[in-house]
Amino acid sequence: MDRMIRNTQQETTMNLDTVARSVRSKPDELVPSRYALKIGDIDVMVISDGVLPLPSKMLAHNADPAVRAAWLDDMFLPPDAFDWALNVVVVRSGAQTILIDAGLGLDPDLHLPRAGQLVKRLEAAGIDLASVTDVVLTHMHMDHVGGLLVEGVKDRLRPDLRIHVAAAEVKFWEAPDFSRVSMPPGFPDALRATAKRFANEYHNQLRTFEDEHEVAPGVVVRRTGGHTPGHSVVRVASGGDRLTFAGDLVFTVGFEHPDWHNGFEHDPEEAARVRIELLRELAANRELLVATHMPFPSVGHVAVAGDAFRWVPAFWDY
């Protein structure tokens, strides 16, 4: 598989072929924010939307606090709060440029200056918003749709933009149920408001599907449920290579403890069941995994480790 990231002193043009050769960064960008690879004939780029600081309890509100604390200590993570990665993916298949999820956006009331970086990082990568033909949403939590609500973004998007999302997800947010989540105060209200605003502003662009839909040749979105009723994953397949973007089904802790419940899961038991099923599938077929909240660039494989799993990060290829 040919992954391409090369230094260049030339301006990039607005396509992934040249973007994949560029690692130009602004002086204030001290961390890598994009990683390009090839899945057969399909270009894939993982882009960091920044990081989201959240309480460590959000990892596993059903776990024994002492066991959770021991896991955090073993992982050299702070005991009270840590940074959750925010990753999105840009895919080019044939004539289509597909944005998978849209990041958090820029809400000044959230006071999250290190998140909501997607728009400027797309620009830094040479990807023009007007070149995006399709958006696929794994679900409608605000850290997946907020980038489309940034002031001025809608005006820069194509008028014929297609936004693919499961019909069950749109239906859920008409009257969302937060009775089984374990979120910090204020989050349910913020999630409700953002989902409602998104549905209102982009109603005409929505293209809903029931269970599975081919967005472009080799790019298929499939509803899994669990995290939210319409949560979906996206599989990219070409030339014998495969990669699955798992959205919020998989978190770092979910390999060793796939039965631990994340605080943002609206149906924790179903989310755990779907997570285990997906991890078993990925371990068996050895395809690549990318997920929203895995440490950037979150490209790697899944291995079976007894009754649980093991994360095997891919070696960076320059």
Rank of each mutant, 00 (worst) to 15 (best):
D2P: 07
D2C: 05
R6L: 08
Q10P: 09
M14H: 14
T18Y: 14
R21T: 12
R21Y: 08
S22V: 11
S22H: 13
V23W: 10
S25M: 10
K26W: 10
D28P: 07
E29Q: 12
P32S: 05
D43L: 04
M45F: 03
I47N: 07
S48W: 04
P53A: 05
A63I: 00
D73F: 00
D74Q: 01
F76D: 02
F76V: 00
P79R: 00
F82I: 01
D83V: 01
N87H: 02
V89N: 09
V89M: 11
V90K: 02
V90A: 10
R92F: 04
R92I: 11
S93Y: 03
I98G: 10
L99S: 12
L99G: 13
L99Y: 06
I100R: 10
L104F: 03
G116P: 12
Q117V: 10
E123F: 00
T133E: 14
D134K: 14
V136G: 14
T138E: 13
H139V: 11
L149M: 05
R156H: 05
R158K: 09
R158Y: 03
L161S: 10
I163E: 04
A166W: 01
A167K: 11
W173R: 15
A175G: 13
D177S: 08
S179T: 11
M183I: 04
L191E: 09
L191D: 06
A193D: 03
A195W: 06
E201F: 05
Y202R: 06
R207M: 02
T208Y: 04
F209I: 09
V215T: 03
V221H: 08
V233H: 11
V234D: 06
R235W: 04
G240Y: 03
R242K: 10
L243A: 08
A246S: 09
A246G: 06
T252R: 01
V253Y: 01
W260S: 00
R273Y: 11
R273A: 15
V274H: 08
E277P: 14
A283T: 09
R286A: 13
V290T: 15
T292G: 12
A308M: 11
R310Q: 14
F315A: 15
W316D: 15
